[in-house]
Amino acid sequence: MARPQQWSEDDVLEFVTLKAGGQSYCIEITQIREIRRWSPVTALPQAESAVLGVMNLRGAVIPIVDLAARLGLGKCDASPRHVIMVVAVGDKTVGLLVDSVSEILSVSGDQICEAPAMGRGDVPSSILGLISIEEGMSRILSPSVLLPNVLREVA
């Protein structure tokens, strides 16, 4: 299968895999700042439904995005068992609410397959590529999908 353009064949890459809405996704490790427990957030007025609110990350105010809701997999009922992945997208920092963080995948560029086009809808455009893992496959998330809508034009 064709390989997405942004990775060359001999790149050695590391991804962190996570579960959101029952599916496996992954994000390149260089984007991840930290992983922390869920704690209640402060809701924002006029926010899209996937943006749960803002959280205090050592003094920085960061928005928390419900990744499952963002990907159209239904709202996540946040509990202390859930995890916030703090990721950097460009110069913005965003927290992602996910079910769990699984492992670190070390793959070479030729192990990444291009995401097949699936008609319309923005879910496929949020996937940069696929990696086969033991229990199936993990979807590489496009950084722009991680941002709240208000920031997406910027990124």
């Binding site: 007025p45 006029q46 803002v54 920085a60 105010v61 960061i62 913005k92 920092t93």
Partner: peptide
């Protein structure tokens, strides 16, 4: 005072 615009954006009323 902490800016919201750094990581999020402007919110009307806030």
């Amino acid at each position: 005072v902490k800016s919201l615009e750094g990581n999020y954006g402007a919110i009307e009323g806030i």
